[in-house]
Design a protein around this nucleic acid. Structure first.
Lengths: 212, 212, 212, 212
DNA sequence: AATGAATGAGGGTTCATTCAT
DNA sequence: TATGAATGAACCCTCATTCAT
């Protein structure tokens, strides 16, 4: 005997994706049960299948939906900006990294690490839509900074991954070790950026790591 | 009549752990099948239960067995060493990080990220035996370097995680994105260390970012 | 606002029954989905339930609706006919059998064979409305032929099923084996009737199997 | 907590196939539940999957296992026999047809009719292993009889299906209509053969339908 | 010590049926 | 009248775990 509450169908997929994120993130793909996803979304199990053909489709939708818009936004911000390289890095880039370490989005990051190898097309999608664009973004900022004389030539132009690495650490620490040993990821990320700028600014930023 | 006692029983647990690592790492905890672990180890499924009470026990044994000795070894090396801070970082520490990004051990890292939240005692063990000791090791090197005047005071003394972050990136990149875009992790890690040393060496390493 | 009342409601049940026949016949009762029936009929799933209380009711309606009128028609033809027995058999009876082997009606036959045991009341209905009337019809023709001296007494008077057996073979062959080995069911049925008449005509029909 | 009765594993597959035949035959492929098959075989549901990978494999095994040996046996009998055509038809062929209408094998026949269209490879197998061999067998008997002058040339040489048609009717009648109206299939089949022989014997069998 | 047959709970998925709109 | 969102029971299949041998 169906109840058919019929809320706003338009919000359903998002509600399911939100619920699924929590379940997937807290239990992993395989251990997450669609029963629980449905319960968390306040609907019946069968209805999940109206919107997502399989568990795997739902999983992919979670990853796709939650990360890409965020990256789009960051990139749009940066590209339209007239700021100097160091201002960009200290401003929107740092702020993005800090958010990633705190918001629910970080769950998506962990999911990718955890489940990526079993979902090659998802990894491919993620590399294409998030990683390579992120890498290009950082490299663009650095290259432009160097071209303008704001920055010295430096290895992060070849390996922009180095710039984002602490964000990964922050995300993973939050998820695994926060209970055992607190880490102020906001300050850590800020310190990282200051240290990087100290190493590559031209002329060196004063007041960062004192030079005597 | 058992046809051949393929191995000395004494080697059994290790053989099983090795087989289990492969299965867990390639499929994840939930999707790994004990049938496959047993087959890979060349024994029957039932025999696995003689050595490990449950699947979870086996999983924990995998993580415990494979990572700790490696860290023990690195720490012993460093603590006995009379080298200067920059020599330690450029030498055994860099070399350890490069190995982690390449060897089977990196599979354990991924497993922890993937399964950690579901196995709190495992995460606790791992934090205690690996992470906190690693953090202390790096901090020790830096503090000693600063005390000796080899290094300038710097934020990595508070956040040694910043120093290891690129290793995490290297491991994860290898596992997820190597197929889509090659990354020379050895050179990346070396560049990272050089950049760090350029920022914190005292006096600054010449040729890198000299000023004055 | 319903866009177009696609059909006159009066035609609805027939449209649904037609669609259901296709689905039931091609997939079997259990595997047929009401979604597909509705889609094929060009209506919504819910509307099917306005006309048929359950899937089973619909199934029964399919079988009832499609076969009985055909048999009614044949019987009316025969009973009103002044023809001799051999003329009836060679004429309308043969023609009916040939049609059954070709038309969509044959799908109903298969459905009955397939699903009969699970729907005893359906089987009962079918036996009463189709089978027993068919048996009586054939027996009537034969008995009358014998009474008039057109036919010799013969075992098909007791077992009229023997007369219709090849129709069953024709139907089943078409459905299962046509792809592997063609069978000209029209000629087979005609040959059957000639052979029967050769055996029971009185005097033997000349030109069939006769000799001189 | 497994019981592990460990009977005679060698008999297991046959026991399962037997149980499956009953379930499939009484409910149809889709409606048969593996739970019930297992229960009927006296084992657990999981064990069925040790012997048969999927429900479909089990279904095919049922059809393959139960019919082919029977046909093999009949063919071997006939081919080794020195009997005259009419003796063969009245003897082993009639007896085979009578058995088919009575034994559990008839359930397989119905299954094929019911499920054939959904399992093309099964239909193909069945056509190859049973139908075409049966057709060839009958045709061989008739052709040989004609060549020896025992029989007159007749349409069943082209359509041997006509000869077996009543067996199909017998099988189907037993399954669907026996409850509503008894049919002595043994006598019906015998009468069929006598009538056929009356029509094609050379010289005509005396006493049947003599024509002067 | 070692095997692998056997169990059964658990979860993904389907779909007949209902009912608010 | 007509829709299709929503439900939930049912069933196939997997696999960790047990235990007779």
């Amino acid at each position: 005997m169906p109840k058919t509450s019929r809320r706003q169908p338009a919000e359903r997929p998002d509600a399911i994706i939100g619920a699924a994120l929590e379940e997937f993130a807290s239990k992993g793909y395989a251990a997450a049960r669609l029963d629980d996803v449905a319960a968390r979304a306040g609907i019946s199990k069968g209805l999940v299948y109206v919107y997502f053909k399989t568990k795997e489709e739902l999983f992919k939708a979670v990853v796709r939906t939650l990360l890409v818009p965020r990256v789009d936004h960051l990139i749009a911000d940066i590209e339209a900006s007239p700021l100097r390289a160091d201002e960009l890095l200290r401003g929107p880039v740092l702020s993005f990294m800090q958010q990633m370490a705190r918001s629910r989005i970080r769950l998506v990051l962990r999911l990718l690490v955890a489940e990526g190898p079993k979902h090659p097309d998802l990894t491919e999608f993620y590399h294409r839509e998030v990683i390579s664009r992120g890498v290009r973004l950082i490299r663009g900022i650095l290259d432009r900074g160097v071209a303008r004389g704001e920055l010295k030539p430096n290895p992060m132009q070849e390996f922009p991954q180095l710039f984002v690495a602490p964000m990964l650490v922050a995300v993973i620490w939050q998820m695994l070790f926060e209970a055992h040993s607190a880490l102020d990821t906001d300050r850590m990320l800020a310190a990282h950026i200051e240290m990087m700028l100290a190493a590559i600014s031209n002329p060196p930023v004063s007041g960062a790591k004192g030079k005597s």
